[in-house]
Design a protein around this nucleic acid. Sequence first.
DNA 1: CGGCAAATGGCAGCTTGCTGCCAGCCGCTC
DNA 2: GAGCGGCTGGCAGCAAGCTGCCATTTGCCG
Lengths: 222, 222
Amino acid sequence: MSTPQQVITIHGEQELAARAGHLFEGAESEFVCAATDVNTWSRPATRAAMAGRIRHRAVGPVIRKLYTPAALTDEEQRNHLLELGSLGAQVRICGTGLLRHETIVIDRRVMILAGTEVAGDREFTVTTSPALIDGVYALFEATWEAAAELTAYLRREPPQVDVEGRRILRALGEGLTDEVAARRLGLSLRTYRRRVAELMRLLEAESRFQAGVQAGALGLTS
Amino acid sequence: MSTPQQVITIHGEQELAARAGHLFEGAESEFVCAATDVNTWSRPATRAAMAGRIRHRAVGPVIRKLYTPAALTDEEQRNHLLELGSLGAQVRICGTGLLRHETIVIDRRVMILAGTEVAGDREFTVTTSPALIDGVYALFEATWEAAAELTAYLRREPPQVDVEGRRILRALGEGLTDEVAARRLGLSLRTYRRRVAELMRLLEAESRFQAGVQAGALGLTS
DNA sequence: CGGCAAATGGCAGCTTGCTGCCAGCCGCTC
DNA sequence: GAGCGGCTGGCAGCAAGCTGCCATTTGCCG
């Protein structure tokens, strides 16, 4: 039994930049990261410095960045990510808010995991262990596959549907006739049909089938 | 700089069982694993022995198992997973086939990653490093959230829809009237409506809206 | 080539859905 | 208290969809 490759701990972003910064610019084939948002680096100067070391060029590493929706609540972050995308990076948003610490894998050879913040500095774990890297990479890939591309994610911002609208869509999703659904929801048939017409306009649907596809895709029927 | 916790490598399932088997039965709060299928253990005896050490009881660790659809192609595996579910384990299927090596996290304290097979034996990496465990656990959680519960996944096996059926569903998804769609597809209105009725039965839908939700969810309209 | 079964297509009757119109109600403001 | 605007609900006309029926067509098999 032996420890094949070292796992080392680095305290603080400055030390990380000093000791592992070259790994960022040394990326040859691939650079992937998963994080809650782009604010892993607490010091903006460090963030700019680290980001600047990733080479954005036509022939360079494939850059894949996976964030949670939290990365989009701030307009500055959102614009930053859109700019990354226009520079050639692949950015996806996964459906959950559970990527707590940034995980970076470079060329599938080196992995950097941001840890907890201690006395104002963040702790990083750096490893070259293939087993650790492959295990994390597999989970990253699984999450990446399920995630939505950034611009597609932004485009599908659901229309504002109130509580009653959602109840109507759920009734529709159950296959009820207008008469049955209206009675169930305590509305007159005419009012129910008025509401359905409004929802059809909101969903930009020209038929009930089309409205069903759209409402289902927006998670409005469950 | 120091190596806070050891990362050790174990060769072979028997050695793993001998050195780390107690970790399986020592699980107190949680046992999670992610794998392509249940055949990580190449020797059935080892698999039975390891599985047997996980205590299935009302007050015991929460057991969460994440597999790819590959785990369901074999009927024996599928039945095994269904039995696990009925014994209280949570089993989910993620949409991708990319969980290459089994990853196990016990009580968020210990992580075991199965590695490559060397000379008939599999290599395992065992670590208690919190940073490594948290990084992997975050990605596991993200994948878990996006995955489908086992019985729900099995229930949603898409119905067999032929090429013409898909074209009809796409036409429906575009919001076309039956008359316009029938002409587009070179069918008479009666035949088109016959086909739509068949698809409605296949999708078990009682209205066009409901059919739209179901077809969209099954990826049949794009 | 003929027979037969399955599929097609037109028609019609019915149901469900769409929307305009209008009367009545309700809440708000003056 | 009156007036007004917005909403509701009933009715009706029309459109779209659903399905049964029947004649015709098509394709397959002996």
